[in-house]
Design a protein around this nucleic acid. Structure first.
Lengths: 193, 193, 193, 193
DNA sequence: AATGAATGAGACTTCATTCAT
DNA sequence: CATGAATGAAGTCTCATTCAT
């Protein structure tokens, strides 16, 4: 049943984000999902598969929402880039623990799981890269920088909101963070009119 | 004995960086250090204390080398900033796994341990902040951005070399990474002469 | 399952009475109960809880049987007292090791466990005290002695059968012991007709 | 060195009485005696030997003081008995924990150690038995009771002060306890003049 | 589809004891 | 006489996983 799958996933996500993979027992996941331990194993092969599903679920959320938002945005590359970056940050801000979990537990996963994560990350950042390249080709952005580096920075800065939340939250609102970060980027790469 | 302490620390650091805190048993640390399990407990109260010592050891390395390098550098704020950033990246590049470990296992530590980590991170970034502020006061850097944000980005970008090494390494050498990143920053914050 | 609980309790009681709390491993309890170690922990939180359950089980046995026997006995205070004392001694003689265990390991228990033990001991001795007081009020027993002291002695003497069994057994049968001890007491406290 | 031996014994006695044999580590004994662990092993073969020495030391204290006091007392059997009983109780009251330790840890000792304990207990109670028999032969005490039982009770009641101290202390001073207990006994066994 | 009793390997940790110095 | 670093066996407890019902 599709619903059970989702219930287990949510329970596991909640607990693992709160306490980390190793501190969460299958029993506690079952308890939170309101089912028995045995039943989890009819939906997930083992604990690692459960973690992998949780992480992939999170990354797929990014992958669905960031490109979608960019498509809805106008045709101007800078605007599109801002829209993607803002959405990225918003999704992260909505569940910062999820992002942190993906960082923390990536080595817990098997080779396969890690590769799947990397693929999703790359796929998610592709529209951002597209916008940067479009901007360069349109003469809006300088050619001096590798687009991959620019995208790497945007992703890193978005993740930074979750990773260093303890340090940023007292000083910046999410809006301010997004605004200033994008302004910083634009000043660096924009070609003066 | 000072030497034993270091041997244990090194063994633990190596293994934990490789496989993560939970995947490393005290027995395996003992084996790698060439001693018995019991002896570890004469130097560290428990496994968590060992992790904490490993992480603090790494962070102290940053804290010793970054400010020292900046002091040796000249008086120009931009140059000083570059020097600090480059050193930061170099230290990270020397043992990227160590940086990743600090990220991954910070929640494994007790409140106390986490606070100690944060203190060390802040202390390490202080000279960077100093340089940014000096630059602003000297009229070299724009006042438009919060210096804390600039420093946050520098630290994040430095960590990024370790965190996203799998993605960067094929495209950039460390030197290129440092150079382009700093150029990106300068273009954003430098006041035109 | 009620049966498992009892099986574990019996196994633990047997072994602990034989060798003492510290000499008994959870593994040995599991072996004797014919189950695995892990299962013990589904019934008892930890080893101390197991000891506590064993001791309480013993004391509750006293608490159930001594008052019950006294109620079945006639109305004469002296007779009731004898009946209570005899039953007390008989229960102790049935499993002298259990009594010794309660003495030996009381300090092994936490504050809570010790308090529970004291409560049960006091509750068990209450009907004895009642009989002594009734005897005094009926003019059968002298007022010269504190009833608490008389009860204390009865309890101590009953326990004595277990505590000094090695010394008594060759000389006295349980019947003789009970008879002579009670005669000793009566001569001391009985008011001559 | 004689002094070292005593220091170790005292340290061990103090700690074991406080926390029990198993809760006391050789290291803690060494710390309290102000020496190194290794040195303990030059005076005692192993931990059990240390416990045995502690217990024997306590019992020898009884064995020295009870008979001595009785000898100093007058020739009247009843008076001698009281003197012995009082001294017994006083020694016990001086270090009740020592008595409790002897009870608690007797099963911790090897067969040999336990036998040595029993010997000492019996030897200590001999003068009490002597006094009872003298009293009977002098026509002061009734022949109706086995002298061994009377002595057993006296010893048990003396130990009772330590074993049930928590229950007695609020109600009785040691003096009252000794006085009333002996009065109880005398009424039971004294032949009316 | 669902349960949860049962397993047992494996982790952390302690501590009596030894021995080179 | 004295130290204390070092050992390693043994103990308690947890938890992923299975399977009979």
């Amino acid at each position: 049943m599709r619903r059970r799958h989702r219930e287990i996933l949510d329970a596991a996500a909640h607990l693992m984000q709160e306490s980390g993979y190793h501190a969460v027992s299958m029993q506690s996941v079952a308890d939170r999902a309101g089912i028995s331990v045995g039943l989890i194993y009819q939906y997930f092969n083992n604990k690692e598969a459960l973690l992998r599903a949780v992480v992939v679920d999170i990354l797929e959320d990014f992958h669905e929402r960031v490109p979608a938002a960019m498509e809805r945005s106008g045709g101007d590359p800078a605007e599109r880039l801002l829209c993607g970056f803002r959405t990225f940050c918003e999704v992260i801000a909505a569940k910062p623990e999820a992002t942190v979990l993906a960082y923390r537990e990536s080595k817990t996963l098997s080779r396969e799981g890690r590769d799947q994560m990397k693929d999703l990350e790359i796929k998610t950042s592709l529209p951002l890269k597209r916008a940067v390249i479009d901007g360069i080709e349109a003469g809006l952005f300088t050619e001096d920088f590798n687009p991959d580096l620019v995208v790497h920075n945007l992703v890193l800065v978005a993740h930074g909101w979750a990773l260093k939340h303890w340090n940023l939250a007292p000083t910046f609102s999410l809006e301010e963070y997004v605004g200033q970060q994008f302004e910083l980027l634009l000043r660096a790469i924009r070609v003066p009119a």
